[in-house]
Design a protein around this nucleic acid. Structure first.
Lengths: 346, 346
DNA sequence: GCATTTTTGAGGCACGTTCCTCATTTTGCG
DNA sequence: CGCAAAATGAGGAACGTGCCTCAAAAATGC
């Protein structure tokens, strides 16, 4: 038996092809009774629309825009590459993906870009940015126009995006906490926490999750105040040096954000490489190398390739008003040690 | 600018549409020179074949067969469900998926089934089974017929499958090893290892990886001989009881295969629940529950949903002789703790 | 019951391929 | 050079759907 087509539906429902078409595409001018009859026929025959044929006929193409901050962060770079790759294979599905890097500190410029996109029109937008009122309003406007908006990596709870692609930062922090606690072993029960900036949602959430677990499961461990580096390697060197001087040796270091390379240098200079337990976030060339050489103990990561593909799939589904396969789109909080480090994606 | 079509290629190469078609579909009867000219035009214009249109025109549908053992194992069951789900959404892509459970102990019957499939014809086969000579020959015959064969979860290195969907068992064992070693802390440096059967490739490989790491990084820990349960809860109870009597308390238990429920019962009866570090494999309802309640410390898993989707994608690509997106199909060795336990997929 | 509006039918072209057939041209070979 | 074989061209039908128009039928309001 072959798959039923619109023609079969028309015959089964006793209506014409045009009417079936109107029903399928929710066009006006059909009586409720007729709609019901058609839907019933669809159900009876188990009709599934041939999306390939539909898209071919529509000869519709999609313009998806992905906005990433222009920070130097290796993670963002990895993500950009993954998106570029996913975009390349999305051509097959008639999707054009534009990648835009915006000035991370200028939220007004970003809002202007969003407004421009709203004017020009596009089929979907994915955005990785902190949530500010300006951005929230711009996004609301876009959504009002029917443009699907996906929050990337960093959630935008108040802008009500159509979807969030990323992991729960709090849970990620909790995971970092257990690993730190259990890996500490007989080391001094004192842990340093280093962040780029505690103004970022994710940093705050990660630290919260981390503290939750440390307090609950490892009450004997002292977790020091978060040190901020603002992305500067020299600032990192300075705060780490100061703390080591003031607090003596620490058993572990939790790196909330970037700065792995700088941390490696400071530790190596002081002959500490390999001694304290180091837990960080995100799998990048640097963290991969640090894991392989053994001084980085664990990384809590989200799969950039998965994020990229999921983003495009979700945007596409939203643009087509199709449902989303939740189980496929759910991102896992990955724990990566030296032993389960995935092969280099050449 | 729109995407170029076959017509554009024909014009650019100065040949007819028919010739372009012959080249694109590798049909005979075209001179090497002409083929080169067409390919050059394709390169120049950046033509990408519209797969949707191609499949529509071919009106080809695929019959994929997935063969799973009829073992009671929760993992196989989870996998079956994931496959069923993936199959449901594959209908859209004109793929019909048949799931067959075969008698795990009767390899001759399985070989017969494979031969039958070869006769009936199908577009692809995925198989989860140990490699025996009979099976190897049956698979070779299938491959000779041009039917793509994918090894599922358990690799078939000597049958030269077109693809292997699963993780490296040795690396999985190594990962289990590090976690065990580091989690042991101050517990007695003695670890029990329990398997279903040491005749299975995966069990052997996992144990090897585990030993590698224990020897290298935790030389002070004594790893006991592997105990075999042959899938029987009573056998498990017996061997565990015996060992505990002979060896005294152990600091950790590494469960190579299934039997989590039975282990939980034994431990709970002896008041040991939560004391030794327990590391197991695969995320199933049981292991999920054990993780949540805290007595199971870590699970090394491969994502069943990913396996299922990847299998179908790969089979499809192989059937179409299309290249595979390696980075998308690479399975990760997942480490799952209570803190990063993914939400129940309702 | 009539005019008006709403709903439905019939048909055709388009989308980008695949896969035919049949005629025509080009090539290679003796 | 002539002939058979190979290569190419031209064209058309099909795949399942979208989207358009025009006319016909049915429902609605008065």
């Amino acid at each position: 038996m072959n798959r039923p087509t619109v023609i079969d539906i028309a015959r089964e429902a006793g209506v014409s092809l045009a009417t079936v078409d109107r029903v399928l595409n929710a066009r006006p001018g059909v009586r409720a009774k007729t709609i019901a009859a058609v839907n019933e026929a669809i159900g009876r025959l188990g009709y599934v629309r041939d999306i390939a044929a539909a898209n071919l006929a529509r000869s519709r193409s999609y313009r998806m825009v992905v906005l990433l901050p222009d920070t130097e962060s290796q993670f963002v770079q990895t993500l950009e590459e993954a998106l570029r790759e996913a975009a390349a294979s999305a051509v097959t599905a008639r999707m054009g993906v534009e990648l835009i890097r915006f000035a991370a500190e200028d939220m007004h410029a970003l809002a202007a870009t969003l407004r421009r996109l709203a004017e020009e029109g596009c089929s979907g937008i994915a955005l990785m940015a902190p949530e500010t009122p300006v951005i929230r309003d711009a996004l609301r406007a876009l959504r009002g126009q029917g443009v699907p908006v996906v929050a990337l990596v960093s959630d935008l709870p108040n802008s009500e995006p159509d979807h969030y692609v990323g992991i729960d930062s709090r849970a990620a922090g909790r995971t970092a906490g257990v690993l730190m606690g259990r890996f500490l072993g007989a080391r001094p029960p004192k842990v340093m926490v280093i962040a780029n900036s505690m103004h970022l949602r994710e940093s705050i959430e990660r630290r919260r999750g981390f503290d939750e677990v440390m307090l609950r499961d490892f009450p004997g461990v002292e977790v020091l105040q978060t040190l901020e580096t603002h992305g500067s390697p020299t600032a990192l060197r300075q705060v780490v040096t100061e703390i080591l001087a003031a607090e003596g040796t620490v058993g572990g270091i939790y790196l909330l954000g970037s700065g792995l390379r700088a941390l490696g240098r400071v530790l190596s200079e002081r002959g500490l490489l390999g001694h304290p337990v180091i837990v960080g976030h995100e799998l990048t060339p640097h963290s991969r190398e640090a894991l392989a050489s053994g001084w980085l103990d664990a990384v809590i990561a989200q799969n950039a390739g998965h994020i990229a593909r999921s983003t495009l799939r979700v945007l596409r589904a939203k643009a087509d008003r199709l449902p989303i396969d939740e189980s496929q789109e759910r991102l896992r909080i990955e724990i990566i040690l030296r032993e389960n480090l995935p092969d280099q994606p050449l």
